[in-house]
Design a protein around this nucleic acid. Structure first.
Lengths: 135, 135
DNA sequence: TCACTAAAAGATAAATTTTTTCCTTAAATT
DNA sequence: AATTTAAGGAAAAAATTTATCTTTTAGTGA
């Protein structure tokens, strides 16, 4: 398993406590908005500047350590880049989850229908999560 | 074929020249950003306020006459609500296109994998359009 | 380990984007 | 046509994001 320090170094980013914390938060929570990152960060670094969050998020996104996920009808969340996956958003509790299923078929079909050479897919599905179906 | 006037009335929105123009622009161009809508609008209504664009876009989105499409790595565009479809974004010329292909399979698969009751899908694919493949 | 260099953090300001307010104007209803 | 209600325009305010400047810190190599 790769350490967070290694992850930063591989992306040519200096290892700072703030960056380690951002990654730790994303690893723990999966998906966080800028605002959520800032609030959580303040608990451990009371003097952190919001600019530090923005600068780091932008740098990590440029180096593709993390990735922005635009949420329909909501604020963008950020996640650590892993294998390609879909996003599920719950209408009730608004949580965002990853699911990993094959996208080859729909991409092939879209390539045929459109003539595009497709490089990447962004798929987000909105609905009711299993927890909220019960409650 | 439904008229623009009827479209507005069905959504309980007053028929104003500005709204008719917004819809006409979206019907002509397919997908436009706030900024593009504002610039085009200024040509016909030199005194139009940017707030008018925002207020109308938000109202039309609430009544689901139009819909926001969040573009990965770009600004949101708006389109008139039609039948469900996918979006293709060209990496080179940055145009946004609709393609209509079945999404039942991937939605079924995602429902099985996640346990969600899926209500709506947002699928955007990034790649090179046929025109840019030639040029 | 200690300096040196380059980059990051924090604070603040600036720029950008979006929303709100207030007043005037226009559309819908009777 | 008169009344009611909502929309438009202008401006301010709020919210979000980026840039600037100075101080601090991490990485590098002697």
């Amino acid at each position: 398993m790769e350490t967070t320090v290694e992850l930063l170094k591989e992306h040519s980013l200096k290892v700072t406590p703030q960056r380690l914390k951002i990654i730790a938060m994303l690893e723990k929570h999966g998906h966080l908005t800028i605002d959520e990152l800032y609030r959580l960060m303040l608990q451990e670094f009371p003097n952190v500047s919001l600019a530090t969050i923005y600068k780091n998020i932008n740098q990590m996104a440029e180096t593709r350590l993390i990735q922005e996920v635009k949420i329909p009808g909501g604020k963008s969340v950020y996640e650590i880049v892993k294998e390609p996956h879909l996003h599920m958003v719950c209408d009730r509790c608004h949580k965002v989850e990853d699911i990993i299923i094959g996208t080859d078929k729909i991409i092939k079909e879209a390539e045929t229908a459109s003539g595009y050479q497709i490089q990447e897919s962004f798929i987000t599905l909105r609905g009711i999560c299993p927890d909220c179906q019960k409650g």
